[in-house]
Amino acid sequence: MTELAYETEHTIIEGHEEHGHHEGLPGTIGHVSPVKSLAAVLGTLLVLTVITVAVAQVNLGRMNVVVAIGIACVKASVVAMWFMHLRYDKRFNFWILIGSLAFVAWMVGYILFDSTMYQHNIREYRETHQIKTAPIPEVEDGHGHE
């Protein structure tokens, strides 16, 4: 009995060995990502970056925000699942992330709804004090982002 006694029976993290194939040295802790899959992830992220820049040049009105956030969410998921190994990790770490995101959505959503309640007070204040503003652009007039 040597220093092996300080290893557990399961040095590879809980049952995510893929199809019996596991690259790496015997007894390695964690999942070893093949270079091919790392490169594929970077490729996907770069393609999505080009798409998000291209789509922003087209004026979709309010949909521009939705599309931009949608593509960013896909990119973030790709980073989390592959670069951050969540796909091969303990499920608990995944649920920490989801739990945190749930509170993010709650906070942004709740405060957003609340903030729109007071806009008429601000408008009234601006009108009574005759505060000049720049002309508010019509988002549909084709000026968008260029």
């Binding site: 922003a56 956030i69 960013a72 982002h145």
Partner: peptide
């Protein structure tokens, strides 16, 4: 940054 880039730089 993946979120900051489109939100600040891209969409108007």
């Amino acid at each position: 940054w993946i979120f900051l880039f489109p939100l600040l730089y891209l969409i108007g």
